[in-house]
Simulated scan of single mutants.
Amino acid sequence: MTLDKPSLTDRVKRAFAAFDLPLMVIMLLLLAIGLVALYSASIDVPSRVASQLRNIGLAFLLMWLLASLPTQKLMRIAVPLYAFGIALLIAVFVIGVTKNGARRWINVGVVIQPSEIMKIAMPLLLAWYFQKREGGVRWYDYVVAMVLLLIPVGLIAKQPDLGTAILVAAAGLYVIYLAGLSWKLILPVFLAGVIAIGSLLAFESRICQPDVTWVGLHDYQKHRICTFLDPTSDPLGKGFHTIQAVIAIGSGGVTGKGWLKGTQAHLEFIPEKHTDFIFAVFAEEFGLMGESVLLLLYFSLVVRGLMIAAGGATQFGRLLAGAISMIFFTYSFVNMGMVSGILPVVGVPLPFMSYGGTALVTLGVGVGILMSVAREKRLMQS
């Protein structure tokens, strides 16, 4: 008896069966736009584009592996991955590599940033934690979840790395909220935040004086916030990033100056133009029309992720997919906000556009997890 070998088309379909088509299309479009913007931002360093293509290849490989992995296996690695991440964060203070006054990296043959692991490990652990308590969540479960969240956030903030600490905190808080945290507990925190922001705006001229010390914050963090409130107070220092980025966005107008024709980027006025401030490069060259397309793609990415979360087969899948979807929103909102001057500069990359291997791999893993949750639902329906 002779068995017919599957055709090439069948083998390709089987290999990519775990992929979610809408999610894949959105991600590919963002990556394509990112490469176009990166080429312009790195016209003087063309090797960056080749390096980013390698990063994309690695991200796709991990995405495919995660998409093919059942969510039950993701649950099994939640606790070990969290414990491993905490151990590495502690190791940073012992054997960490210091760059620009911050100790965030470990050299293990290659230099890695352990805090990046927590962006995935944190929502994984909390989704596992609430899955184990499905149907019987008590008030103290939220307290335990907050403690589990505050441990890595505190360690990351101590490095110091405020941007990554915010992202990890957001990832965990999304899971806690989606697990059913009452608005009665959220509202006071929200009001406290509004009062704090209002106080900063009202008393900025007093509290931003050099002789005023902010409890719990480093001097550079205080300076960053004060410069955000008034970039012109340090136009050639901390305010330079924001001022030049806003000029670039405004000079793009409605249709932009055209690809490779952005003066702010090519005359080296925009710092970190290939990483955190790549949105300013894109906005100057493609204008409001290009920005609108980009915003639509990020909106579609978040909506598709939330649709996958809503259809998750288990509470673990729903919580995890919902948190990852909102992480994409947080990345995009914080980056565009800091580049356009409505948020402080905290060093958050723009998803799938900013140059960098670690962040891109983390995002690829996140998309792979979303696809795993979507695949589980499809298998249950078939």
Rank of each mutant, 00 (worst) to 15 (best):
M1P: 10
L3Y: 09
T9G: 06
R14I: 01
F16K: 10
A17V: 06
M24T: 05
V25N: 01
V25H: 03
S40V: 13
A41I: 12
R54G: 14
A67P: 15
A67G: 15
L69A: 14
M75W: 03
P80N: 00
L81E: 11
G85L: 11
A87E: 05
N107H: 14
N107W: 07
V108Q: 08
S115P: 01
M122E: 06
L124F: 00
F130W: 06
G135C: 06
G135S: 11
R138F: 00
R138N: 05
V144S: 15
L149S: 07
P152S: 09
L155N: 04
A165S: 07
I166G: 12
A169D: 04
A171F: 02
L173H: 11
W183T: 10
I186S: 01
S199E: 01
S199F: 06
V215N: 10
Q221F: 15
Q221P: 13
R224W: 05
F228A: 07
L229R: 10
P231M: 00
K238T: 10
Q244C: 03
I249D: 04
K257A: 02
G258A: 00
G258Q: 05
K261R: 13
A265N: 02
F269H: 14
F277H: 00
V293Y: 05
F299K: 00
M307V: 12
A310K: 09
R318D: 04
L320R: 08
L320I: 02
A321D: 05
G322I: 00
A323N: 02
I324S: 02
T330G: 08
T330F: 08
Y331M: 05
I342G: 12
V346G: 09
P351T: 05
M353I: 14
Y355F: 15
V365T: 11
G366E: 08
G368V: 07
V373T: 02
A374L: 02
R375D: 08
S382N: 12
